[in-house]
């Protein structure tokens, strides 16, 4: 294949994949009142407006909270699980693996509905708590999978050596294993953060008055107002994701973990 053909195919594909974002960025920079492309004059007023919308601030804070603490909790229980599945010859390891991975397989909207009907309502759980638990469950499979693959690449005899040299197993884990799977944990955190932050279907049924994640809030804002501020917000979020991924890629070659 000639170079020209290669770049033609890649150019078309990437335009299709990335082009829409460039359009959103410009649509958000419109000086006009309604969403359009090309924009009616350039202005940053919609980008500025995003920061003044009270509900965006509240839902951004909630989404941040869920993404950070949901992912941390998932790592807190996911790392020991990944370690156990990798280092202990557990009977039924496959079953445990399947159980923990299950939230990925089931469509999000079903997860949200099931939790609302058979967890939130009967146990009288608050909506924030319900969202926290849901996001943790949805992120857990990624935490276990990514940390597992890091552990796979780390030879078990290192910890065994540490144990022979007098460490307890816990000390060996903290001193030998953790520093070596740091990259994997960070990758799992970023993947979990992004998954949780962008999650919509499961959160759809779990949103209440005043308690909404940012994507759900954007959807309801769009239903009420059709100005370019959602485009501006979309563009800002895209920048945030790009920045996170870029930094992660620089630091640890993130894409090999995805």
């Amino acid at each position: 294949m000639s170079r020209l053909t290669i770049w033609l195919i890649l150019g078309t594909t990437l335009t299709f994949l990335i082009g829409p974002f460039l359009i959103v960025i410009f649509a958000g920079a419109s000086a006009g009142e309604a969403l359009s492309f090309p924009p009616q004059g350039l202005s940053l007023k919609w980008y500025a407006k995003v920061f003044t919308v009270e509900s965006f601030r509240a839902s951004f804070a909630l989404s941040m909270f869920l993404a950070i603490f949901g992912t941390l909790t998932a790592l807190l229980i996911g790392i020991p699980a990944a370690y156990a599945l990798n280092r202990y010859n557990l009977p039924g390891a496959e079953a445990i693996r399947t159980i923990v991975a299950a939230p990925i397989i089931v469509p999000g909207i079903i997860v949200g509905l099931a939790l609302l009907r058979y967890f939130v309502v009967p146990l009288d759980v608050t909506i924030t708590m319900a969202l926290f638990v849901t996001h943790t469950a949805l992120v857990l499979p990624y935490a276990v999978r990514v940390v597992s693959s890091s552990l796979n690449n780390l030879r078990a005899d290192m910890e065994e050596a540490a144990v022979i040299l007098g460490c307890t197993r816990f000390q060996a884990f903290v001193k030998v294993v953790l520093p070596n799977i740091r990259g994997g944990i960070l990758a799992a955190f970023i993947l979990g953060f992004v998954t949780s932050f962008n999650e919509v279907p499961a959160s759809l049924f779990l949103s209440g008055p005043g308690v909404r994640t940012l994507p759900i809030d954007m959807l309801s804002y769009m239903e009420i107002t059709f100005d370019p501020s959602v485009a501006a917000l979309s563009a800002l979020l895209a920048f945030m994701s790009v920045a996170i991924v870029f930094v992660a890629e620089r630091l640890l070659g993130f894409s090999r973990y995805v």
Partner: peptide, 20 residues
Amino acid sequence: GLVVLPLMISPVARTYAWIV
């Protein structure tokens, strides 16, 4: 990296783009 990039962006933003 450019191919992976869209996966990291909110599906709301990705779908919204198509309205425009």
